[in-house]
Design a protein around this nucleic acid. Structure first.
Lengths: 195, 195, 195, 195
DNA sequence: GATGAATGAGAATTCATTCAT
DNA sequence: CATGAATGAATTCTCATTCAT
């Protein structure tokens, strides 16, 4: 095994792994844990079902890994808001637009699946306990409070407002095909302070 | 044999059927079609799984029956709005409160499941084709237009407004445990015309 | 319980039992043991399935009873030949016509089912051991030998001739719908001595 | 991956498929469709029941495939007669011997099962409609007519003669264990013209 | 690393049988 | 005697997972 060869293998491994992950996100998001067959993921990734097991120990393992990624990404994207310039409202609008963008759907679906389905594997379940929905709310809270102080966000219990805001966004993202996705402005109306 | 006995049997049948239906709504709503095992329904209803088949031919049959009920009930509840007194906005607020009330969750979940899950039985699928989401929007449209004419509802394409409104409500109802359910007022903000 | 009432009950019992037996013969003959559901028998007899169990302990019990009747009847009908007048060939022709008559089909089917199907209950199986196919052949043998001595029946091992004759008849009777039932004359050609 | 491997897999597939088919013929012939459990076929073939489903979609599928083979083989074997040399009677005797040979039993049983049993799958049923018993008779008819013209076959309605002949052969082949199988000569007596 | 044959646990469904009324 | 509600064992079929090649 020359180092070159090793590198090649590593590259193949990474490629394959990503192939599988992308396929799995797609299928899990649409069909949920139970509704997703390993063969579907393999077919979507264009490989044999046997190969999936070279890279992921079990179906639960694969799902848990996806959830972990989804949670980390989404938490990071919220925390990223605090480094951005602009008024609180502007930054919230940015986040709202970001969340409502098409490419985020699978991540929300995944988190939704993990929070609900009963076939949720232990590991994914643990993750959801560590970073429960409340975690998202907690991280948004300071921003909303800031907004209230700036007179941009409607008065009222800030935790309630954030909770409502997050529910509405989550709900929309989970709906899937057939439902109209409102634009950010529409959702923002629920939180901006009327003049 | 005696009329009394006949009645007793009818009563038992009705009771059991209702028991099963209630249990099924509960379980289907939470777990979806594939995720729901007949044994879960039986256990939830406190009967043997064999008895479920005494009353419902198949799992698909049972699910389809529930969907039919859910669709009919929800359509009727929208259409009922047109007979009520009050301004359009007041009536929409009424509907919003009604939809957001706890006891409606399973119906929305059911319709959501029927519109999405992959194991949707043919009969339920047909129902969803007959009464697709658009049907709900169509039925709400006149009321919203009325509201716009009365200056109560925000300007803009009424179909878009209704679609967004319905998406937000549907999304919320589908989320299930862990998420905060906003009160009607919060949702109403997305559609009322700012003064 | 007046004696009159007892008699009435007895009569009902006998009627019901016969109703069930007739229905069972019909259904078992066509569908075999496994293919016959108790509910089919009950439906054919026009009673509830529960009532069948008042008269027959189990499905196997019912089947065994029918086999017993079929075996006894058919054995008796062969033995009856020996008391009849006429030449051996004439009496064999009589038996052949009798067997080939439509109303005998179910009995042959039943015996065939009992001899083959693997779901044969222990009791019926025992009966078939006591009166196996050989029993029929043994009982026909003297008549055929007589026929050979009288120059009416073809020469050759009489046991083989009887066996063949019985196989052909049994086979025909077992075929059921769709197949043509030859008349007695046709079958007789296999055993009569050519002039 | 390599062509060798490809061939190996093909070979394994063919072997397994044949193993299953042979086992299935054996079990279906004896027990009929309903009486045959997939586990029996698997056990007979010495494999897991899961593997049977790897090769055949359903039990009905497997049965239908067997019927198709049986029908095609038997029709072909009749049609092959017309290319053979010899007098009509000689060729019919050949066919009779062929049919009565031990190895043909399962095929006749199978066709019999398909023509009768109640659990006959739609596909097999369709095949039996396309090639009903009448088809066999139609294909034999010309040969028997030839035989009558040659003075070898008994006079009378040829369709009736063929029908009877086919019934007798079918009946014998269907009987199964316990019954004596007559030799061809015995059966031929029913159709040859007496001198 | 990659494939797909092979296994077996689990879920839907059927049906013989029991039993309260 | 008669009914049909109720149960659970048995069967078909699916799919996650293993493993030889």
């Amino acid at each position: 095994m020359s180092p070159l060869r090793e590198e090649q293998l590593d590259q193949i491994r990474d490629e394959r792994k990503d192939q599988i992950v992308q396929a799995a996100i797609k299928v899990f998001a649409r069909r949920g844990i139970i509704g997703t067959k390993m063969s579907m993921i393999a077919a979507e990734a264009g490989i044999s079902h046997g190969l999936v097991y070279h890279y992921f120990k079990t179906k639960d393992d694969l799902f848990s890994m996806l959830i972990q990624g989804a949670v980390e990404t989404s938490i990071a994207s919220i925390e990223g808001l605090y480094g951005l310039p602009g008024s609180p409202l502007e930054r919230i609008r940015l986040l709202t637009e970001h969340i409502l963008s098409k490419e985020n759907t699978p991540y929300f679906m995944l988190i939704y699946q993990a929070a609900h389905s009963d076939g949720v594997p232990e590991k994914a379940g643990r993750l959801m306990k560590e970073y429960p929905l409340q975690a998202y709310i907690d991280r948004l809270l300071p921003l909303f409070k800031e907004g209230q102080q700036a007179g941009e966000i409607a008065d009222g219990d800030p935790e309630e407002i954030v909770g409502n805001y997050f529910s509405i966004l989550s709900g929309i993202m989970v709906l899937g095909e057939g439902y109209r996705i409102p634009n950010a402005e529409f959702v923002m109306r629920t939180i901006v302070k009327p003049k």
